[in-house]
Design a protein around this nucleic acid. Sequence first.
DNA 1: AATGAATGAGTTTTCATTCAT
DNA 2: GATGAATGAAAACTCATTCAT
Lengths: 218, 218, 218, 218
Amino acid sequence: MIGNEAVVPAKLDKATRNADRTRSLILEAATQEFAELGLAGARVEKIAEKAGTNKRMLYYYFNSKDELFIAVMERAYFSIREAEKELHMHDQTPIEAIRSLVSFTWNYFLEHPEFMGLLNTENAHGGVHVKNSESTALNMPLIDMIGEVLHRGQQESIFRAGVDPVQLYISIASLTYFYLSNKHTLSTIFSRDLMSSKAKVERLHHMLDVILGYLVIN
Amino acid sequence: MIGNEAVVPAKLDKATRNADRTRSLILEAATQEFAELGLAGARVEKIAEKAGTNKRMLYYYFNSKDELFIAVMERAYFSIREAEKELHMHDQTPIEAIRSLVSFTWNYFLEHPEFMGLLNTENAHGGVHVKNSESTALNMPLIDMIGEVLHRGQQESIFRAGVDPVQLYISIASLTYFYLSNKHTLSTIFSRDLMSSKAKVERLHHMLDVILGYLVIN
Amino acid sequence: MIGNEAVVPAKLDKATRNADRTRSLILEAATQEFAELGLAGARVEKIAEKAGTNKRMLYYYFNSKDELFIAVMERAYFSIREAEKELHMHDQTPIEAIRSLVSFTWNYFLEHPEFMGLLNTENAHGGVHVKNSESTALNMPLIDMIGEVLHRGQQESIFRAGVDPVQLYISIASLTYFYLSNKHTLSTIFSRDLMSSKAKVERLHHMLDVILGYLVIN
Amino acid sequence: MIGNEAVVPAKLDKATRNADRTRSLILEAATQEFAELGLAGARVEKIAEKAGTNKRMLYYYFNSKDELFIAVMERAYFSIREAEKELHMHDQTPIEAIRSLVSFTWNYFLEHPEFMGLLNTENAHGGVHVKNSESTALNMPLIDMIGEVLHRGQQESIFRAGVDPVQLYISIASLTYFYLSNKHTLSTIFSRDLMSSKAKVERLHHMLDVILGYLVIN
DNA sequence: AATGAATGAGTTTTCATTCAT
DNA sequence: GATGAATGAAAACTCATTCAT
C-alpha cells in the first residue's frame, strides 16, 4: 500500500472504499476522543465525523463502542512498545542509559498526551481491557533492559545496590505522568504555567536530578 | 454547626439535621461516583440511589450535575488541606520532616482513592472547576513549609542546594499518585499484585529512598 | 380510584401524573402493537404515541421492550383466565356445558384478536416468556372443569369414554384459533370471506357439530 | 431445468448450476429465518450468512427483503401442493381416505414446521403476499377431492350429510396446526411435553377420533 | 456471478432535568 | 424537605439497501 502511493493518482488518495484506511482513520479519531473525554464522554458520532465516515462504519469494523476502545488501547500499547525498541540502552554507559530512559519517557508522554488520557480511562474502568489483551507482560523486555543497566552500574560501583527495576521504571514514569496529566490543576494551584518551554526544561532537569541523585553513589 | 443545636427548637433541629445529612450523603455518594466514573460516566440516578434519596433532592441542593461536581471537588480539596495541617514539619528534623511528608502523601492517597479519580476527571476537563474556586493557591502554605524544611536542611549541610519546593512536592505526589492511580494496568503489565501489603510497604520504602537519595548529601 | 371518579372533575380524567393510568395505557397500546406486528415489528415510539405518553415512560415502567412484552403476555393470560371463570359449566348439562365452552372460546378469540397475535409471537420466540411467568399451569382449573363435565357425560351414557380433557380443550381451541388466525390466507385460498356474519355463524355451528359429533354417543 | 444441462457447455453449465444453487441456498435460509422470526424479525445479514453468501447476492436474485419473502411463500405453497398430489384419496374407501388426509396433514406440518411460521407471518401481515400470487385458489383440487370422498361416504351411508368440505379441511388443519404451532406455550401451560413420541402418537389418534367421530354415522 | 465497503434513515435506549403534589 | 411521574434531547446501535470493483 505504501509502495503504491507514488503510482496512484491523487484521486485515490482521497479514496473511499479502502478498508484499512477507513479502519485506521476511525482508530485515530477514536484515540483522540477517548483520550480527551474518556469512554463515557466520547461520542460515537463525533468519532465518525472526525474520521470522515459515518457511525455505521464504526460498528462495521469494531462492533461496539467498548470494542473500539479496546482496539484503541491495544494500538496505544503497541505504539509505545514500538517506540521503546528504539531505546538502545545496551550501547550506552549506565548513566547515559538512565538519562535516555528518563528523557524518552518524558518526550513520549509529551508528544502523546492521548496515551495518558487512555491510561486514566482504562484504570478508571478497573483495567479490564488490558487484562483481556495480548499486550500483557509485553513490558518485560524494557524491564530486562533496565535490569541490565542497573547491573552494569552496580558492577562499576556507580549505582546503588538493591534497586528493583520495576519500581524504578514506575518511578520514572510517575515523575512525568503526574506532572503532565495534572498540568491544569497543578498550574492553578501553584500559580505557574507548568507547560511553558522554560518550565518543561526545568522539569526534565529536576527529574534527571531526582533519578540520578537516587541511583548514583558518590 | 454542632454548637447551634442547643438553641434551635427540637422539631426544626431535626429537620435541619436531616437536611444537612441528606446534603452530605449526596456529596459522599457523588464523590464516589465521580471518582470512579468521571463526570460524564457518573449517573445522577445512581448518586441519588447511593445517597438513599431521589434525584430531585440532588437538584434541590446542588442545582445541576456540574455544580454538584464542583461541590465535590471543593470538599475534596478542603479535606486534603485540613489533613495537611496535621503535618507539623516545623517540629521535626529536616529528614524526619521529609519522611513525614512522603508517608503522609502515600497514606492520604491510599485512604482516599476518590481523590485521584477526581483529579483525573478535573484535569480531563481542563481544570476548569478549580480555576473558579476559592481553593486556588491554597497549597502555598504547604509549599512554604517544604521550603522552610529544605532551607533548614541546606543550612545544616544535609540537603542538596537549589531544590525547588514545588518540583519536589510534585515529585513526591507523583511517586504515589501514578502507582496507585494506575494500579490496574501496572499490575497486569508487570504481572505483580501492586496492592498486596508487602508490595505497599516496598513502595513506600522505595519512594523514601528515591526522595531522600536525591535530597541528602553524604 | 374507581370510586373517586364520580367526585373528581373532568380535568383530572385527562390527568397526567397518574402512575397506574399511564402504566395501563402503555400496556394496552403495547398489546395492540405486539399482537399486530410481533415483537420485532412493533415500534416503541408508536406504542408510546398510542398510549399518549412518550417513549421514556415506557422504559420508566417496563425497563425494556422485551420486559414490556412479558408484561403484555402476562396481562393477556390473566384476562383469559378471568373470563374463563365466568363459565359455569358445573351448573349445566354436559351437552350444554360443552356448547358453552365452544362458544366461549370462539367468542373470546373473536373479541380478542390480540390474544392470537401474542400467542403467535410468543411461540415464535420459543415460549420463553410464559416459562418465566407465574401464569404457568393456571389453566388447570379449566381442565378440571372439563374433566368433571366429561365424567358426568359418561356417567349419563351421553359422552364417549376415554376422552382426555387436555386433548379436548386443545382441539376446541384449535378449531377457532386456526380459522381466525389464518383468516387472510384461508379467505384467499378458498375464495370465501371467512369473516362475514354468515360465515362466522356457520363456523360456530360446524365446530359444535364436530365436537359434539365426536363426544356424543347415539 | 435439470433437463437442459446436457445441452449447455460445461463451463457455463457450472456457472449456471452455481447460480441456481446460490439462489436456492438463499431461499432455503430465508425460509428458516422468516418462519422462525417473522418478516420484521428476520435479518437479511443472517440469511446471507446462513446461505453461505453475502447480502449483495440476495438483492441480486430477489431485489428486496419483501420480494424474497414472497418467493419463500410461493415455494412453500408450491411444496405443499406437490405433496398433496401424492394423496390418492380416490383409490381409498371414504374412511381410509379421511384417515390418509388427517395423517398426511399431521405429518406434513410435523416435518415442515417452517410452513406454520410462514403462515403466521403472512397472516400477521394481512395475507397480502398470497393475494398477489399465482398460488391463489390452488387448493381447490384438494377441496374437490375431499368433496368427492364426502359424497362417496354419504352415498354409502357411512358419513353424515351436509358436511362442507372447506370447513372440514380447515378443521383437520386446525387440529394439527394449533397443537404444533403453539407447542411451547401449551407444553408450559399444561406441564406436559407435547412433543414426546408418545404424545405425538396420542395426538394423531385423538384427531382421527374427533374427525371420524364427527363424520361417521353408526 | 460474486463481494466487501459504505450509507442514511430509523430504532431502541439513556440521561439530565423539571413538574406537580 | 421530600418524592414519584414526566419529558425532550441526545446517545448508541441496527437495518435494509446500494456502490464500486
